[in-house]
Design a protein around this nucleic acid. Structure first.
Lengths: 111, 111
DNA sequence: AATAACACCTAGTATAACTATGTATAATAT
DNA sequence: ATATTATACATAGTTATACTAGGTGTTATT
C-alpha cells in the first residue's frame, strides 16, 4: 500500500547528510529544502525528520547548535562532522551498489 | 548501521513480481535467481522471502500452486495474476519516481 | 554415516517512518 | 482585534517489514 513510505526507508540519513554537507541547516529548513529540490516528491513530516536528526547527532554524524535570531526565535543548526563526511561517502556508495543491483532486476520490461 | 536492510524495504515486492512475471517460480528458486541476476547483491533469507510471497498471494498479486516432482518432492510455484500485472506496472513507476527524486538530491558530488 | 543442498514454514525481534499531539512565536487574513 | 497560517522545535505511541532463529523433511554428496 504505502510503498513510498518503505522505499524511503534507509535513504533519509543520506538525504540529510547530503544537505548539511553543503551548508549548516536547521530542521524546518531541511524539510522545505528537500521538498524544493525533489520538486515536491519528498515531504517529510516533523515526526520523521526530528528523530532522524537526533539519531544522526547521537551517532556523531552531525552536530547541532542553537542559534538565536534577532527576533528571539530559536533555531538549531546542524552541521556535518568529520565522521559524517566519511559516512556520507559510504552511504552514497551503498546507494549506488543497491541501485545497480535493482537495475539488474527491474529492467524496463521490453514492451 | 544496517542501511542495506532498510534500503531493500519496499522493493522486495517489486523484485518478486519482476521474476514471476517472466515465468512461474518457486521460493527457493527465487532466492537463488535474485542472487544470480543481481551478481550476488541480493541474498534474501527464507524468513524474508516466504512471508513476502504469502503477503503477495494474500493480496492476490501472485498465486501459488503445489507441484510434485517425479522424485516426490514438493514445490510451490507462484505465477502472477492480472492484478499483479497492474501492480507491477504501478510499482515500477513508483520506483522510477523515487529514483528521480533521489537523483535530484544525491548528485554525485562534484569532487 | 555425516554433511550440505534442497524446499518449505513461522513466532518473535528490531528498526524506522509516520500519526498525533504538544509548546511557542511571527506573519497574514478576516 | 481575532483567527488562521507559517515558522520552529519536540516526543510518545503505532505500523509495517526485513530479519533472526528455530523447526520439518527430502535428496545428493563426501
Amino acid at each position: 500500500m504505502a510503498q513510498r513510505r518503505e522505499l524511503i526507508k534507509g535513504t533519509i540519513d543520506s538525504l540529510l547528510l547530503c544537505l548539511v554537507v553543503q551548508q549548516p541547516m536547521y530542521g524546518y529548513q531541511i524539510i522545505k529544502e528537500l521538498e524544493r529540490r525533489s520538486q515536491g516528491y519528498f515531504k517529510f513530516k516533523e515526526g520523521t525528520l526530528y528523530p532522524a536528526l537526533h539519531r544522526l547527532e547521537k551517532a556523531d554524524l552531525i552536530q547541532g547548535k542553537w542559534q538565536t535570531l534577532p527576533s528571539g526565535r530559536q533555531r538549531r543548526y546542524y552541521h556535518i562532522t568529520e565522521k559524517g563526511l566519511y559516512s556520507l561517502a559510504a552511504k552514497r556508495s551503498q546507494w549506488l551498489d543497491f541501485l545497480a543491483a535493482m537495475n539488474l532486476i527491474i529492467q524496463p520490461a521490453s514492451d
